[in-house]
């Protein structure tokens, strides 16, 4: 029997033999996106997990043209590659960046904002594993409230990270970007459709994909995909798009699954108490009230 999603994408593997941890969500996001974009994708990866595991001379794990950028420079290097290839007469290529949450929401946000402002013809994919995982699980601007990291330890006085995630999707949208989307590797066909869509739109495209890290989240390697699905099902993440100046919700859970179950499966949240749980649920409900009000659903 055919798999409709598998039929849409390349049978070739562009990211293979890499040294990512077993069950790495980020590597699945990169692999899937490149199977959409194909041989003429030029990928830019900043210092971070995916470059560290994919580019150790002479073990070079991308079969398409790929390059490491500076940590802050994913978007600016994409700009340069796109402009340089265009200046040299190339027309049939896609410049795509894969940066983590820290590389996107923290150190790389300036260059990303500049690229969106210029409306450079690039796809920027943020694979969000919610902390600096390559350096050993430190808090980033996309670490969620309550998460324990090595720089937000959970103890008697402080229960992990005190601040919620930055809203990169709406930050990108606020630039008036031609296309922005959220996704999760737990809903891979949805992510793949969004990459396909991005490839057809001119200008800057931003896709924010949740990509769990078994090591940093404190889950078994075989849980990556399930937990990435569950974060959507319990309403702590959502699948949406922004284009033509408006937001669309792509997936609406009939009822949310248990936030507590989602959190308690992960080592990074195991310390949370009832009050913390209540804070998280309230913040989810507030977000969904905003979505109900401002996003269309179809």
């Amino acid at each position: 029997m055919g798999n409709p999603t598998a039929e849409r994408i390349s049978r070739d593997e562009y990211f293979y033999g890499h040294k990512a941890c077993a069950g790495c969500g980020g590597s699945l996001a990169v692999r899937a996106a490149l199977k959409v974009l194909g041989q003429n994708a030029v990928s830019v990866l900043p210092a971070g997990c995916m470059s560290a595991v994919g580019f150790n001379f002479p073990q070079l794990c991308f079969s398409n043209n790929s390059i490491i950028s500076t940590f802050a420079g994913t978007a600016s290097m994409l700009t340069g590659i796109e402009a340089g290839l265009r200046a040299k007469g190339h027309t049939d290529f896609t410049a795509v960046g894969f940066a983590g949450d820290g590389g996107t929401a923290d150190i790389g946000i300036q260059a990303l904002s500049g690229a969106i402002d210029r409306n450079d013809n690039i796809i920027y994919i943020c694979y969000d594993n919610e902390a600096y995982m390559n350096t050993g699980i430190q808090k980033s601007g996309l670490t969620p409230f309550g998460a324990r990291t090595t720089t937000t330890p959970a103890g008697e006085h402080i229960h992990g990270n005190l601040r919620p995630k930055k809203n990169m999707f709406e930050i990108a949208a606020a630039h008036g970007i031609p296309y922005a989307a959220t996704a999760s590797i737990g809903y891979l066909p949805d992510f793949i459709k969004k990459v396909e869509k991005a490839a057809k739109i001119r200008g800057t495209k931003y896709i924010h994909v949740i990509a769990p890290c078994p090591t940093g989240w404190g889950i078994a390697p075989d849980q990556t995909v399930e937990i990435a699905k569950e974060v959507v099902d319990c309403g702590l993440w959502y699948l949406a798009e922004y284009e033509n100046d408006s937001f669309t919700l792509n997936h609406k859970p009939k009822t949310f699954s248990s936030v507590e179950d989602y959190l308690k499966k992960q080592g990074r949240f195991r310390h949370l108490d009832a009050a913390d749980l209540e804070t998280i649920i309230q913040s989810r409900d507030k977000k969904w009230a905003f979505i109900e009000k401002n996003f269309s659903y179809r």
Partner: peptide, 19 residues
């Protein structure tokens, strides 16, 4: 570009494109 870091990062990208 929006900074000098990006100015040179962009130039590196362009050079890597053969430009």
């Amino acid at each position: 570009v929006e900074s000098e870091h990006s100015a040179l990062s962009c130039a590196i990208g362009a050079s890597a494109a053969g430009a």
